[in-house]
C-alpha cells in the first residue's frame, strides 16, 4: 500500500494554494473571495506541517507557526466579515462589481 510522502502533501498544498489564488481572482462574491483566502492560508498550514514532519522533525517551529496562522486567520476573517456587512448595508449587495465608486 502506498503511504503518503512529502511529495504527495506538497502536491496537495500547492494545488490548494493555486486554487485559492484562482478563486480570489475570478470570483465576484466577497464571501467567496474570503473563502479563497482561507484556502491559501490552509495550504500554507499543510506546507508547514509536512516540512516539519518529513524534513525537520527535530523542532516544532512549523507546528507552532500553523497554530498561530489558524488563530490570525480567524481574526482576519472576523474583521473582513464586519467590513463586508457594512458594505452590504450601504450597497445592498456583496458583489465586487457593485462597489465601483472609485476608478483610476
Amino acid at each position: 500500500m502506498l503511504t503518503p510522502g512529502l511529495y504527495h502533501l506538497l502536491f496537495i498544498s500547492s494545488a490548494l494554494f493555486f486554487i485559492g489564488v484562482y478563486g480570489f481572482v475570478t470570483r465576484r462574491n466577497l464571501v467567496t473571495m474570503l473563502m479563497s483566502i482561507e484556502l491559501v492560508l490552509n495550504s500554507v498550514n499543510l506546507n508547514f506541517i509536512a516540512f516539519n514532519k518529513y524534513l525537520w522533525p527535530n523542532g516544532l517551529d512549523g507546528l507552532f507557526f500553523t497554530i498561530f496562522i489558524i488563530a490570525i486567520a480567524a481574526a482576519e476573517a472576523a474583521v473582513a466579515i464586519a467590513i463586508i456587512i457594512n458594505l452590504y448595508r450601504s450597497h445592498n449587495s456583496i458583489d465586487v462589481e457593485q462597489a465601483e465608486e472609485m476608478k483610476y
Binding site: L34, I37, H91
Partner: peptide, 21 residues
C-alpha cells in the same frame, strides 16, 4: 469608505497569504 476598507482588507489578507506561502 466601506469600499476602501473592503479593498484594503482583501488585498492585505491576500498579501499575507502570499507572504506565508
Amino acid at each position: 469608505a466601506s469600499e476602501a476598507a473592503m479593498k484594503m482588507i482583501l488585498s492585505s489578507a491576500f498579501s499575507s497569504g502570499i507572504l506565508l506561502f
